[in-house]
Design a protein around this nucleic acid. Sequence first.
DNA 1: CTAGGGTTAG
Length: 669
Amino acid sequence: MGNHQDAAARALYLCRLCTNLDALRKVHASLVVHGLTGELLLGTKLVSLYGSFGRLRQARALFDLLPARDLYSFKVMTRAYFLRDMHSHVLSLYFLTRLSLHPTPHDPLLFSVALKSCADSRHQRHVTVLHCHVTKSTPPDSFLLTSLVDAYAKCSLLPHARLAFHEIPHRDVVSWTSMIAAYVQNDCARDGLILFNKMQAAFVHGNQFTVGCLATACTKLRSLHQGKWVHGFSLKKGIAVNSFLTTSLLDMYVKCGSVHDARAVFDECADCDDVVSWTAMIVGYSQRRYPHLALDLFTHRGWAWLLPNSVTVSSLLSACGQLGNSVTGGSLHGLVVKSGLDDPPVRNALVDMYAKCGFVSDARYVFDTMPEKDVVSWNSIISGLAQSGEAYEALEVFKRMRLELFSLDAVTAVGLLSACASLGNLEFGCCVHALLLKHGLVLNSVYVGTALLNFYAKCGDAKSARMVFDSMGEKNAVTWSAMIGGYGMQGDGGGSLTLFRDMLKEELEPNEVVFTTMLAACSHSGMVGEGSRLFNLMCRELNFVPSMKHYACMVDLLARAGNVEEALDFIDRMPVEPSVSVFGAFLHGCGLHSRFDLGEMAIRRMLELHPDEACYYVLVSNLYASDGRWGMVKQVRQMIRQRGLNKVPGCSLVEMDINNDTFANVSVS
DNA sequence: CTAGGGTTAG
């Protein structure tokens, strides 16, 4: 018997020396040979070791074979599950412990592990059950009650969390901070800040955790002012920053609209060496439309020893999409495939990136090969197709989406409405409008309202567009310009102008898009004087730098109205080199007013400057065609071919039969 | 026992 115990003690010592799985297996094998596996302490040690090497099934098998399990062995097995985030196993083992051992044990450690598992798996009922267990056995102490606050908060049971908090006899930083976090996590950020004031009134000092929670509260409230106060508070109190705190502050600045402050926080954190902080900064740049900076940060040498995760990759892909950088996007796709980071959000981001870079077939490929699609996947491909000029395809995909029983959300609707607008498909768009009403999504956001308005306007139904416009609570510059453009498209320049004045009356700053729309509206209604005045207002009083679109609109305005010489003079006085669209507008005017002399002269100058640009030849050809000089048209076409230039023929769609859902292609090269 | 990052939009 004594020999047996000696052998067991020796074996236990050997077990402690195991630093890897192979060594453990050898020791285990020799124990089996010597018939020592029945020893409780030794068996428990094996369970613990297999657990720590990640062999949970092996550990559980040994655990189940233990002859008489005590509280300690249960704790070892539970802990092994807990360290691997296997929440359901932790819980079932907790309940098994209570059933197997008599009297029912109360072990604070086992209890808190079980509670944390309930919280992490968001299991409301189990949290309440565990709460009952603990109140039955002992009067809960501050420690346990604080854990309960956290658990209830994670399970969105804010009232329960408050009750637990009020029961805490001696509240320390952790209890206060847990309750603040509880409010913030449950969308009551304001109450979190109020509780912080009470905490200060109780003379409890905050720490890194407290400040982190406060920063998150400000993020949720989108309050830059309060966020800056929190940042200042942490500096004033000399609370040391770690990467957690830095990331919450950084994210606060990003979400509240101050990327530069975010970068300052990022740069000042010397030991920001984890992926989450770097990713937060990349996300910030990408969300705030600084895609270049996002990619720069990824190629920064600080990244050298960090491994990107799927959040990082999603955000980088979004940046590539914004830039139309398919090269980097493609490399990231390679990275995704090689490193197995392809979770659904990453695949959605890939669809978006390929669509935005104009690789529609690649986008479709990624979409079609997705194992599980969610609303975002469908939205990405629908918007992608709509924006790549494949509006008809977008509607087809939507039909498939409905067949697969997915319901649409606001973003789907925006994509569909933009497709319907470019197709002029009034009927389909009206169905989308009906669906929006059915799902109560119309008043949801400016985006939806604007998309709906834009759709009606593009389909020539300015009346319906105006109804949508008037019903919208929140409007932005895009909303206004869509409505202004709606009138302009109908040739109702007066309507556009009235609305523009309303906009100024509401003291809204018109942006450059509004001016483009206004100039086009004036041009289509022959309002030369008004158009010129607006152009001057924009350049001289509001100090906008006119874009090529503005110049083209001005030339169109003048030339279309017959002031062809003035238009040419305008082109000559432009401070930048005019683009093809400017000449297009000019030549169009020349054609309308039979001023072929001026047209030919201008175009000859352009051809000398750009002898290899096919589009200029097309302009010449169109000019001759409008004069009926078909011989010259033929000559120009030959010239294009001789020079080996290529022009992709244009194509326009005309809706033929609403009831039949048929489209006819009319080629107008 | 308490705190941080994501995709789609006019």
